[in-house]
Design a protein around this nucleic acid. Structure first.
Length: 289
DNA sequence: ATGGGCACCTGGCTGC
DNA sequence: TGCAGCCAGGTGCCCA
């Protein structure tokens, strides 16, 4: 039996690669949860410990024998709730998780297998190894990587008022601020451009000079972009396959990302590309002010 | 406190 | 055809 692909997004052409943003991580969470909830970890195999941070030597022994009580998500981190703590997993820029038979042959870049008592394994693949696997002993919310994060973007506490307050006095470009996890969580490079387009705001505007109304529009756009992407199973730019094997189609909803030189879907003005904080930004010079 | 830049890594593409 | 070089991306960390 072929592995059950839970999440894998691939960008077209020169953007080939896997880019899990919040919708992809949430899609992964929903995909794996039914397969791991209530199962016991019989073994954890680390084939490549050199991820973003080295996988702790004692992790396998610690995890073995523990029951998985649930899968949560905070920002782009996945949290497997175990008896004695949590396993925190980040997909980085190219990571994916699959449910496979425990004895399925390993391919390149399969770095970790979490083997379950049902004979299946949760398999972590990550060509670029920007992902991570960490153990958390206490309250995950107090973990150094999580405690400074902004509210979840789909929570009610993330609203125009919050955004306006945290942006006050900031001189950095709004697009750069949007990708700062202390201010807004879950918006990566693709959705930052998309949200700003939907809100009609130029990516180069000073973050602290956005009006209340603009902050409200931007928050609404962030929520809409993320919600749409989750509904459609994550962005797929070529061969995303969800747990049921259906392709996802969010790429067709991308308005500006990767479209430099092509006509804006609204006004036909050519989409522009610029670099901000060493990252590509796409925008419509006519629709965004 | 804030912001800019770098590092980590690989596969795919470009251009010689 | 082969190969060197560039580029994409998330995000923690260092330094100004």
């Amino acid at each position: 039996m072929r592995g059950l692909f839970v999440a894998c997004t691939t960008l077209p052409g020169r953007y080939a690669g896997v880019v899990p943003e919040l919708p992809e991580v949430e899609t992964t969470r929903r995909g794996i949860a039914p397969h791991v909830d209530g199962h016991r970890i019989t073994h954890l195999s680390v084939y490549q410990p050199r991820l973003r941070w080295p996988v702790e030597a004692g992790l396998a022994q610690w995890a073995t024998g523990q029951l998985i009580h649930g899968v949560a998500r905070r920002a782009k981190y996945l949290l497997l709730q175990l008896d004695k703590g949590h396993l925190m997993l980040h997909l980085g820029m190219s990571g994916s998780l699959r449910i496979v038979p425990a004895d399925a042959p390993r391919g390149p870049h399969d770095h970790v297998d979490i083997i379950l008592d049902c004979g299946q394994a949760l398999r972590f693949n990550d060509p670029r190894r920007f992902g991570s696997l960490l153990r958390i002993d206490g309250d995950p919310a107090l973990h150094p990587l999580l405690r400074q994060l902004a509210p979840e973007p789909l929570d009610e506490t993330f609203d125009g008022r919050w955004l306006r307050r945290v942006l006050a006095g900031r001189r950095s470009a709004i697009k750069v601020a949007l990708m700062n996890s202390h201010l807004v969580v879950g918006v990566g490079n693709i959705y930052a451009s998309e949200a700003l387009f939907r809100a009609g705001i130029r990516p180069g505007r000073a973050a602290g000079r956005l009006t209340v109304v603009e902050c409200e529009r931007l928050v609404a756009a962030v929520k809409q972009v993320l919600t749409d992407a989750i509904r459609q199973g994550g962005t797929t730019l070529r061969d995303y396959v969800d747990a049921e094997g259906r392709p996802g189609y969010f790429s067709q909803a991308l308005q500006v990302y990767g479209r430099d030189g092509q006509p804006c879907h609204h006004c036909a003005t050519p989409i522009r590309r610029r670099i901000q904080a060493q990252r590509s930004t796409y925008y419509c010079p006519a629709c965004q002010h």
